[in-house]
Simulated assay, not measured.
Amino acid sequence: MANIDKALMALSLEEEEDTPFVMPSDPKYCSSERNVMSIMGRTLNPECQNMSDLILDMPRKWQVYDRVRAVALTKDRFQFIFKYEHDLEEIRNIPLNYYTEAAIYDLADLIAEVKEIAFDPEKPQSKDYVRVKVNFDVSQPV
């Protein structure tokens, strides 16, 4: 107990000059190799969005829960590190700048003749997909 008292008494409130740590440019300190198969993002409302729920729920929703590792980087930033490249590539949506009726039409037209698109860019979208009615010959492969 006396040793702890001596150590506490020896502490000073004066600011000491700390020598900054310079990270070596050694490959063992770099995470770029590991990050090749990852996506990073941030929550837009961290006060209302629970980071632990996000990093636990998203792999389940993507159906890759045993092949991805999630990391909470900060209160509002996260990273998902995938085991396989094909899992990373499957998590794709139409990029926001292409979320137009023309792009959706052309994508559906690759499958078959487009009859109707249930998409109005002026109205709210509550689903993460767009319904498209197509007409195709069932005797032919899709």
Rank of each mutant, 00 (worst) to 15 (best):
I111R: 12
K75R: 02
K115P: 02
K127Y: 03
L54M: 08
D18E: 07
K83T: 07
A2I: 13
T100W: 10
Y98P: 00
F82D: 00
E116N: 15
E122C: 13
Q49T: 14
Q125I: 14
N97K: 11
L11E: 03
R60G: 01
S38P: 12
M23D: 02
D106I: 08
N97I: 10
K123P: 01
I104W: 06
M23V: 15
P59H: 03
Y129E: 01
Q49I: 14
W62H: 11
I104K: 07
S25H: 13
E47C: 10
K123H: 03
C30I: 10
K61N: 01
M58C: 05
I4H: 05
L44C: 07
M23R: 14
V68E: 01
L88V: 06
R42S: 08
P24M: 04
E89D: 07
V114W: 05
L56Q: 08
Q63K: 15
I104P: 13
E116M: 14
E113L: 12
D57H: 12
A118P: 00
D106T: 11
S38E: 00
V71E: 02
D137Y: 13
Q140Y: 06
D53Q: 14
K6R: 07
Y105I: 08
L8D: 04
E89S: 11
M1E: 01
W62V: 06
R77F: 02
F80P: 03
G41I: 10
R60H: 04
L56R: 14
A10G: 06
R34N: 08
L13W: 06
L73R: 12
M58Y: 10
P121E: 02
Q125R: 14
A2Q: 11
E16T: 14
F78G: 01
R42T: 07
M37P: 01
N45Y: 12
R34T: 12
N50P: 04
D26C: 10
K28T: 03
E33Q: 13
K75V: 05
N35L: 12
A108R: 15
N97M: 08
F80E: 00
P24N: 02
L107E: 03
M51E: 00
I55L: 01
M51R: 01
F21P: 10
D106A: 14
K127P: 00
T74E: 01
L54H: 02
